[in-house]
Amino acid sequence: MDTVDNTDDAGEPDFQPVFENRVRFAETDQQGIVFYGEYFTFQDETVSQFFREIDYSYEEMEADGWQVHVVNAELNYRDAAEFGDVLVNELRVAEMGTASITFEYRVRRKSDDRTLADGTVTQVAVDLETEEPIAVPDAFREAVAAFQGGLASADP
């Protein structure tokens, strides 16, 4: 049986394409390009879709008594997207600490494979009732590792 290597040349998990969208007119600015703030919306939708892809949705988190809160988000803008462009939004879990999950995000234009933006978003697992940080559940860690072929740890 062949094994699939889901890592890049540095041994990091590969980016997974998890969400495609076509740029809508409402997402563009007066210059006719995607308004920079929209990329955070694309990034957020990509994280949500990632959770669905690993079969661990927000609803399942809540049923298990936890949720995530964004504590940091960063984006680097590389090139402009315009009305009608199809965007491929990719994600990977770069690090998982005791209570934190850091995602690396990248969005490419489908027609020419050009990277338009990349960045990170860090979320912290919190108890649903107390909203205090908790350890990321093992079931979630296992789902991520199975989906992307492993994961890196942010702390011991």
Rank of each mutant, 00 (worst) to 15 (best):
R114P: 03
A139S: 11
N76T: 12
A154H: 11
E27I: 05
T98D: 13
R52Y: 12
E45T: 08
S153Y: 15
V4I: 15
I33L: 11
S153P: 00
Y77T: 06
Q31A: 14
E142V: 06
M1L: 10
Y36W: 14
V124T: 04
S57F: 05
L128V: 05
V4D: 12
E12G: 00
G32M: 11
D127Q: 02
F103N: 03
A26C: 14
F103G: 01
I33Q: 07
W66R: 04
T130R: 10
Q148R: 06
N72W: 06
F19I: 07
V136Y: 03
E82F: 14
V68S: 13
D113W: 08
Q16K: 15
E60H: 00
E142W: 09
V70W: 02
V68P: 09
W66S: 06
D112R: 01
E82M: 14
N89D: 05
E20T: 08
F50E: 08
D55K: 14
P13G: 04
F42K: 05
A10G: 00
A125L: 06
G150T: 03
E95M: 13
Y77P: 01
Q148I: 05
A143V: 01
T46V: 10
M96D: 00
I134S: 00
F50I: 03
V93L: 09
R22Q: 10
T3E: 15
V93A: 08
A94F: 14
V18H: 01
L75A: 13
V136M: 07
V4G: 07
E60P: 00
A80K: 01
Q123I: 12
E90F: 09
L151P: 00
V4R: 14
E131D: 10
G149C: 08
E104P: 05
V107R: 01
